[in-house]
């Protein structure tokens, strides 16, 4: 091949490369816009007046002076909003209870599976794996009966009853047990033997060695579990339902959000969107603060399969 031809070929591939890069970045940018639009529209609508919401065509942006920040005040304190702060408070309490429970039960059982030998270990492990394949709706039916029969869902339900009903069924997770067991398994056996020779008790070894090493995984579990409570809708709706004349200020944020400002023919969209953004924002903040832990946990859960 002569020099000119080589030069031509190089130039051609360079042009090809540039075209390709332009294509890639264009597609990815378009897709990023598609992903961001709902967030943008939510924030935009939350800052409009009712008249601006209904104007056709809709305004695509607002000047700073036009933004109705008072919508947020109204969404929190107006009569129709129901006790929004109360829902937030309930959610934080339920998230704390169920997450504390989940972390304790999963750490203990993951330790047993990763470190101890016992009879029926393989069998029990297999049983857990099989259970993971069963849709949660199978459990919900009986759990609903159970919490009713435990007296947690009576017409005169107390706050404590509601908290129990919303948190106790979620105080363990087979998936997190597996997740944590995987991390515990990576800790070299030699550490355990050395500790044993020194006369360290199992529990102390778990507390002083395994938990500190597995801290990132435990943090991931904590975040994912707490986010799960924040987004929980169905179960709280079921066990604190208003259908049988029960009070609804025991509910969680997602329930409060769906029921607020949604009157069929007069939905107050500007307030609805303000409430929606207030529910969205805390998770986004947690996500940006703890991005690594969350994304690691999620991509791991994929590889596991």
């Amino acid at each position: 091949m002569n020099e000119a031809a080589t030069y031509d070929l190089e130039r051609k591939t360079r042009v090809q490369k540039i075209v390709r890069m332009v294509f890639l970045y264009t597609m990815l940018t378009l897709f990023a816009i598609f992903v961001l639009i709902p967030f943008y529209w939510m924030i935009l609508s939350s800052l409009k007046t009712p008249e601006q919401i209904e104007s056709v065509p809709p305004a695509l942006w607002l000047r700073f002076s036009e933004m109705q920040f008072s919508n947020y005040y109204e969404a929190v304190f107006s009569v129709d909003s129901q006790p929004f702060l109360r829902y937030m408070y309930n959610t934080v309490i339920v998230a704390a209870l169920s997450t504390a429970g989940t972390v304790i039960t999963t750490v203990l059982s993951a330790f047993a599976f990763a470190r101890l030998n016992f009879r029926f270990k393989e069998l029990f492990f297999l049983l857990l794996i099989m259970t993971m394949m069963i849709p949660g709706e199978m459990f919900v039916i009986t759990n609903f009966i159970t919490v009713n029969q435990l007296g947690w869902v009576r017409p005169d339900q107390t706050y404590w009853d509601a908290l129990m009903a919303m948190s106790i069924p979620f105080m363990t997770s087979i998936f997190y047990i597996f997740f944590l067991r995987q991390t515990f398994k990576t800790i070299p056996d030699e550490l355990y033997y050395a500790a044993k020779v020194d006369g360290t008790k199992d529990f102390k070894y778990l507390w002083k060695v395994m938990i500190p090493i597995a801290r990132p995984t435990i943090i991931t579990i904590t975040i994912l579990n707490a986010m799960g409570t924040w987004n929980a809708y169905i179960w709280p709706q079921l066990v604190t339902s208003t259908r049988h004349g029960r009070l609804y200020h025991y509910q969680l944020v997602s329930n409060g959000l769906r029921n607020a400002f949604s009157a069929e023919f007069q939905p107050q969209i500007h307030l609805q969107m303000a409430a929606a953004f207030m529910v969205t924002l805390p998770i986004l903040i947690v996500f940006f603060l703890l991005k690594k832990h969350i994304m690691r946990g999620v991509s791991r859960s994929g590889i596991k399969g």
Binding site: I37, P38, W41, L60, N231, S254, I269, Q272, V279, V286
Partner: peptide
């Protein structure tokens, strides 16, 4: 950016989508 939908509340975003798909003033 692409990960954001995973960490959002389906109820909140669903309501925003309903506004986007509104007949008269939707995007």
């Amino acid at each position: 950016i692409f990960f954001l939908p995973y960490v959002t509340n389906s109820i909140a975003i669903g309501m925003a989508f309903a506004v986007i798909f509104n007949r008269d003033f939707g995007l």
